[in-house]
């Protein structure tokens, strides 16, 4: 049981006997992984930490927590803003053997109050926020992966031209191993997407995966820390823009991309962006369906996991059914219409 008492002894073990846990708050919704905000007194000083562990049924995303720890540990030494990672344990007693990562809490919030207000001033503010996020993505995407130690554990495409193929092979392999139902339409959609894989990329970058609103820590309208790195991968930087939740509609999309391109020193190909918008819908199926396995075996019977792993997956299957066989730009337009509608399927990854 994770509570103030158990975290008290856990943090004392790591930070010293003077440490006193004064407040603990679990963040919402935490279906894939559980995150706790922990405030401490350490002698005369105060501390604040993020304690992160897998849900009882394991993470929904089929990536171990240690991977996220390794990504953050290396990023912290770069110009990319991330919270300071402090320690990782594979199977501590406090969680009954589930892995734990602890990082320092960053001052900020995952929301920006008033961002969607009406009027010219609010619109200009939204564009500034989009530009700042674009600069942070550019900093991430221009990192030297080898010099910063990522090539030691991140699967690397053989070349920029093979980046999309690499991601395709990785996720179709995950799908074959994780699916709880045959869903042959998803198989057929994969063949359709394979015929449309982008054949070029500006470079191989460390990509964050889900990014943008709801994902990062913001302070004074700037990204204070890029957060949640479980879906990080080496690939085409255009792919991150396809996963930039709400950032391209925050201001003028062309201006935001141009700002990013100026900062990064390379261009984002529109046809690649279209492809990855559709590809991300396909990838949501194995990602979310993986979470249903622990529901089916009885180890995690939460209704949220059931709805994400089953209903939401079947909804995405329906969306793929609407797109399959169409030209990619038309399919991307269908995705955009969904994202602009009240349905907002991208929220499935929350």
């Amino acid at each position: 049981m994770i509570n103030e008492a158990s975290l008290q002894s856990y943090f004392q073990k790591h930070l010293g006997i003077d440490t006193q846990v004064v407040k603990v708050k679990q963040t919402f919704p935490g279906i894939s992984r559980q995150t706790y905000l922990v405030w401490t007194k350490e002698g005369n000083a105060e501390g604040s930490y993020i304690f992160r562990t897998d849900s009882k049924g394991g993470p929904i995303c089929p990536v171990p927590l240690e991977y996220e720890w390794k990504i953050m540990s290396r990023l912290f030494k770069t110009v990319v803003p991330v919270a300071e990672p402090l320690w990782f344990e594979q199977a501590p007693e406090v969680t009954g053997g589930r892995p734990v990562m602890v990082r320092r809490m960053v001052d900020g919030s995952n929301e920006i109050p008033g961002l969607y207000d009406e009027g010219a001033a609010a619109a200009a503010r939204r564009q500034r926020v989009a530009f700042d996020h674009a600069e942070k993505l550019a900093a991430l995407h221009t990192l030297d992966l080898e010099a910063n130690g990522f090539t030691a554990f991140v699967e690397m495409p053989e070349s920029p031209a093979l980046a999309s193929r690499h991601d395709f092979e990785r996720w179709t392999g995950i799908w074959r191993g994780a699916r709880t139902d045959p869903m042959p339409l998803v198989t057929e959609a994969a063949y359709w997407l394979e015929e449309n894989l982008p054949t070029s990329a500006a470079r191989i970058s460390l990509c964050k995966g889900n990014n943008g609103m709801g994902e990062e820590i913001w302070k004074d309208d700037k990204v204070a820390a890029l957060s949640d790195w479980e879906l990080a991968f080496a690939g085409d930087p255009a792919q991150d823009w396809a996963m930039s939740q709400g950032m391209l509609t925050l201001g003028d999309a062309k201006a935001t991309i141009a700002h990013y391109e100026a900062a990064a020193g390379f261009s984002i190909d529109q046809s690649s962006l279209d492809f990855y918008r559709v590809w991300e819908v396909w990838k949501a199926v194995p990602t979310l369906n993986n979470g249903l396995r622990s529901f089916l075996d009885g180890s995690d019977k939460s209704v949220a996991r059931l709805n994400l792993g089953y209903g939401r997956v079947k909804l995405f299957e329906q969306l793929l059914g609407m797109m399959i066989g169409k030209p990619i730009d038309e399919a991307a337009a269908i995705v955009e219409r969904w994202r602009k509608s009240p349905y907002r399927p991208e929220n499935a990854a929350a």
Binding site: I31, L185, L308, L315, N347
Partner: peptide, 19 residues
């Protein structure tokens, strides 16, 4: 045909806020 048969089970049932 299969996806059409299943559609009423999931659409629009599962649209909206997921959690």
């Amino acid at each position: 045909r299969h996806i059409e048969r299943e559609r009423p089970f999931f659409f629009p049932t599962y649209v909206g806020r997921p959690v």
